[in-house]
Design a protein around this nucleic acid. Sequence first.
DNA 1: AACGCTGCCTGTGGGC
DNA 2: TGCCCACAGGCAGCGT
Length: 283
Amino acid sequence: MPELPEVENVRAGLEMRLTGRTIEKVEVYWDNIIASPAIDEFCERLKGQQFERIERRGKFLLFFLTDVAILSHLRMEGKYQIVPHATPRTKHTHVIFHLDYEDDLRYLDVRKFGRLSLVEKSNIYQHPSLQKLGPEPTDEALSVYAMQQFLKSRTKSIKGVLLDQSMVAGLGNIYVDEVLFRAGIHPETPGKQVKYQQLEILREAIIKVMKEALQAGGTTIRTYANSFGDPGHYQDFLQVYGKKGKPCPNCHTPIQKIKVAGRGTHFCPHCQKLPQKAEGVTP
DNA sequence: AACGCTGCCTGTGGGC
DNA sequence: TGCCCACAGGCAGCGT
């Protein structure tokens, strides 16, 4: 599943290859992929538009064209590829942007969970999906103080908080398990019970893991590939995700898999303990 | 305000 | 071996 490092990799590849290219025609083969506007308007307004630049915010891709912009989320299995017009369309190809010079930009998605929206360039950052996002997981944007303020009123698990994108943007199920392991925090710890000192460690872990995964070209568990079709390599550095029953890299206790916030969750029961309640202390 | 549930989807793999 | 069904999961939308 593409999370921030994978999406950033896709962004860089697409920007390199699409800048200056013109869309001649758009074909949509699965209507629900287009969140808005209506299919006809989506296709019509993109005709003749030229790619200027491609940005990323959290796990969203922002394509800036001559007059309009496209907001794109890959969700679980979305992929972009650039191929010659003549390439046969596979059954998982749902949108084809016909470009100049006999090429296509194609959107593929086995699960059909991904979404594309055509939006006005001037107010793309006012889009509700982007408004909900917390800061980027970088040294400059993410502060311990803001995390502490955010968590003050949160009773739900720290894993649930990290998945919902509003405290910090870009992490998904894999990287949440990895950063909580590195910070020594049990995934079920209620948000408000994470101590300030642990938050400092968590912030560092988030920034470090995102940076390392980006440099490794992302994580390929099943199917992820960038726009060149290349897989990532960060799966070789995962410490807990997908390691159920394997020894913890720190203490050799078997990694456990449980369900937290409705998601498969991997952690070390020895290195990641729930905070103890104050009650029950003998006088 | 914060939380939890449901719908969207199809390929995979565990159980029998 | 082959069939069936539960499961996987990010986000939007909605109810509480």
